[in-house]
């Protein structure tokens, strides 16, 4: 009897529904702080979807960097600029109608695409037999970042086997990118105004 309902499906619906509802909440709320709040819950639920799909490291990463880091930063920005005239910025009705029309059409197209490929919408029969320690553990990901692919031990292409299928290069590029971005962000938000402060407590 329980076979008719599996935990994966149940949790998927749960997480997908919360994620979608709160994503819609981001769209439809006009208060910027509420938008941020909805976004937190939406991204948190999508982290749940990641866990469900077996990508536990990415899910935790999503929670840590996206939700814990980026969004706190965002809320911080919201608070820094939170004045009453900016808190609620309404979009006029004409824009709403237009954008909802376009958005609805886009969603239809995407959904059509998502469900039209038979390889994608056929259920995977052997799911219960899958054991995926590799993708669940962070170590293979780390190994892939250093150029070693644990999941492709049987790789026959000699070029790929020699570590070329790893992610060492993109990893380095992203690291440099991050560094540059941090410097750039610090430059952009650099102080424009200096307050001469007399006698700091003295």
């Amino acid at each position: 009897m329980l076979a008719a309902i599996d935990l994966h499906g149940f949790l998927f619906v749960l997480f997908a529904l919360t994620a979608c509802v709160f994503a819609a909440g981001v769209l439809f709320s006009s208060n910027i702080v509420r938008m941020a709040f909805n976004l937190v819950l939406s991204l948190g639920s999508s982290a749940g979807l990641f866990f469900l799909a077996g990508a536990e490291f990415v899910g935790a990463m999503q929670l840590m960097i996206y939700v814990g880091g980026t969004l706190v930063l965002l809320v911080f920005g919201v608070m820094l600029t939170a004045q009453h005239r900016f808190l609620e910025m309404r979009t006029n009705a004409g824009e709403w109608v237009l954008s909802l029309l376009v958005g609805g059409a886009l969603l239809m197209v995407l959904l059509q695409a998502a469900f039209s490929v038979s390889q994608w919408n056929t259920p995977y029969a052997q799911r219960d037999q899958v054991e995926i320690d590799e993708s669940k553990s962070a170590t293979p990901i780390a190994a892939a970042l250093t150029g070693v692919r644990v999941d492709k031990l049987e790789e026959t292409n000699p070029r790929l086997r020699a570590g070329k299928s790893g992610y060492l290069m993109p990893f380095v590029i992203v690291s440099m990118h991050l560094l540059v971005v941090l410097v750039g962000a610090a430059y952009l938000a650099r102080p424009r105004m200096a307050v001469r402060q007399m006698r700091r407590g003295g």
Partner: peptide, 14 residues
């Protein structure tokens, strides 16, 4: 004592 210090504000806040 009496040293001047410049406090820089990165964001114009109210």
């Amino acid at each position: 004592a009496n040293r001047e210090q410049i406090i820089e504000l990165d964001v114009r806040t109210d």
